[in-house]
């Protein structure tokens, strides 16, 4: 049987911030883990634990100080800004806490935005945006502005935008942080459904309810990996 290639392979990852006066702060310490295609992983941790820094490195928005990071078999830990931008555009989908939609642009324009940077033509962009909006249950909303739809819908638009370039992985940073509990459930169910269809999802959250949708959990504490295993096992141990 052929070996399955991991989507993410992080080995001995460290991140240290150097400040004026020779001071330094180690935010991530020797973190290693592997994520395979089709996994739904929740990265958890308290505020200041280093989970956002980890997320930024995994999302190719930042580089580690040391260690290696392989995304779909490609070492991205020492790429320059331009190369990282290409990687982000081709392999990564982002879903942000506050949606980050362009408020003056239509829903279809927002969804198709990542395709502009890949040189996809107007017509194809529009067509793919319409298809993607159908997948997230927003058929017929193409020409509305973000301000004309609810927060939950806006996050669905953001999810459609994250999916449009067929990424290897989707990073969702506190995706329900700005939503009420009912809408949060709807969004998480959408993520679960997408995961069932084989899409790899990495979720950063501090909410247990949200993390429950993930099968695997990585807990970061003071910059170190404190737990890496099934979410169900973690809950069982906590309860015990």
């Amino acid at each position: 049987m052929a070996e399955i290639q991991p989507v993410i392979e992080v080995c001995d990852l460290c991140k240290t911030y150097y400040m004026a006066g020779g001071l330094s702060q180690s935010v991530l310490k020797h973190i290693s883990f592997t994520i395979y295609p089709g996994e739904f992983v929740a990265i958890m941790g308290h505020s200041g634990s280093g989970k956002s820094t980890l997320m930024n490195i995994l999302g190719c928005l930042d580089r580690p100080t040391s260690g290696t990071y392989q995304l779909s078999g490609e070492n991205v830990s020492d790429k320059d800004d331009e190369a990282l931008a290409i990687v982000r555009g081709q392999k990564i989908g982002f879903v942000f806490q506050n949606f980050n939609l362009l408020m003056k642009r239509t829903i279809a324009d927002n969804v198709s935005l990542p395709l502009i940077y890949q040189g996809v033509g107007d017509e194809e962009r529009r067509q793919r945006a319409v298809e993607m909006l159908k997948k997230v249950g927003l058929e017929g909303y193409e020409d509305r502005l973000p301000s004309q739809i609810s927060g939950g819908m806006q996050q669905r638009v953001a999810i459609a935008r994250a999916l449009i370039n067929n990424p290897s992985i989707i990073f969702a940073d506190e995706p329900t942080g700005n939503l009420d509990s009912k809408t949060s459930d709807e969004i998480m169910e959408l993520f679960a459904k997408l995961n069932e269809h084989g899409i790899t999802i990495v979720l950063v959250t501090h909410e247990d309810d949200v993390a429950d949708y993930a099968k695997r959990m990585i807990k970061i504490m003071d910059g170190e990996k404190a737990y890496d295993g099934l979410r169900a096992d973690y809950k069982e141990n906590q309860g015990a």
Partner: peptide, 8 residues
């Protein structure tokens, strides 16, 4: 946002 979505 544009940079995160792949804008060089």
């Amino acid at each position: 946002t544009r940079k995160a979505l792949g804008a060089p």
